[in-house]
Measured scan of single mutants.
Amino acid sequence: MTEYKLVVVGAGGVGKSALTIQLIQNHFVDEYDPTIEDSYRKQVVIDGETCLLDILDTAGQEEYSAMRDQYMRTGEGFLCVFAINNTKSFEDIHHYREQIKRVKDSEDVPMVLVGNKCDLPSRTVDTKQAQDLARSYGIPFIETSAKTRQGVDDAFYTLVREIRKHKEKMSKDGKKKKKKSKTKCVIM
């Protein structure tokens, strides 16, 4: 069974824990209790493949930012979460993405942009803004509501699919490099 290491990042209060708990335990946590770091595991079937999701729910508070490099190193894919009623959390996505790329030393890291709290009427981040940002990053965008469960499975499952595509691409690139290195030079 394939294991996928997913990391949920975003500013404090955007609903990272609520999304994760909704996926794992099928219930909505409405009281806000700032996370330092929590880890969850769940076995699911995605596109006919049974897999184990190892999900790291991270601290959004700035005082825990020193811990970010460590979990970013171990993560295979990242859910970059903002709240649709919090423009600052949307603007912060850029910083999370840049930090992930720096730590992973790669421009090509599996990510999904997630606009959470889409059940709320007080939207300050337009869907088109988020779609445009995701398009500019070359990553999928999904709106979710941890409260109603809308888009929750889709967000995590899409990230797994992005990781699969990335692994497939990397193995193809690896095979191309191996083929090239088999060419021999004969000096007579």
Score class of each variant (00 low, 15 high):
Thr58Leu: 05
Pro34Thr: 05
Tyr71Ala: 11
Leu19Pro: 00
Arg161Cys: 12
Thr124Trp: 06
Glu76Ala: 07
Ala66Ile: 04
Phe90Met: 12
Lys167Val: 05
Val125Phe: 07
Ile55Trp: 01
Val109Gly: 02
Asp69His: 09
Val9Ser: 04
Leu79Val: 08
Glu3Lys: 04
Glu76Tyr: 14
Arg164Gln: 14
Thr20Lys: 00
Asp54Arg: 01
Phe90Leu: 11
Tyr40Gln: 00
Val44Arg: 12
Thr158Phe: 12
Thr2Val: 08
Ile46Arg: 14
Phe90Val: 09
Asp33His: 01
Val8Asn: 03
Tyr32Ser: 01
Thr124Ser: 08
Gly174Tyr: 02
Tyr157Ser: 11
Glu168Val: 10
Glu62Cys: 06
Cys185Phe: 06
Leu52Gly: 13
Asp54Leu: 01
Ser145Gly: 15
Gln70Glu: 11
Glu168Ser: 04
Lys177His: 06
Val125Met: 08
Lys42Phe: 06
Gln150Phe: 03
Cys118Met: 12
Lys178Phe: 09
Ser17Asp: 00
Lys104Asn: 14
Val7Ala: 04
Ala134Lys: 02
Thr124Ala: 08
Thr58Lys: 00
Lys104Gln: 12
His27Thr: 13
Ser136Thr: 05
Arg161Gln: 05
Ser136His: 13
Glu91Arg: 10
Phe141Ile: 04
Asn116Ala: 14
Ile46Val: 11
Asn86Ile: 01
Cys185Tyr: 03
Ser106His: 12
Glu98Asp: 06
Ile139Tyr: 12
Ile46Asp: 10
Tyr32Leu: 07
His94Gly: 13
Gln25Tyr: 11
Gly77Val: 12
Ser136Asp: 15
Leu56Cys: 10
Glu31Gly: 03
His166Met: 11
Gln22Val: 02
Lys182Glu: 13
Gln150Ser: 15
Glu76Leu: 04
Ile139Asn: 04
Asn86Tyr: 01
Asn86Gly: 10
Val29Trp: 14
Thr87Gly: 06
His95Pro: 14
Ala83Leu: 04
Ile46Ser: 12
Lys16Met: 01
Tyr71Pro: 11
Asp33Ala: 02
Leu53Lys: 07
Ser181Cys: 06
Ile100Met: 07
Tyr4Cys: 10
Asp126Ile: 05
Tyr32Lys: 00
Lys16Gln: 05
Lys179Gly: 04
Lys104Asp: 14
Lys167Gly: 04
Val29Phe: 13
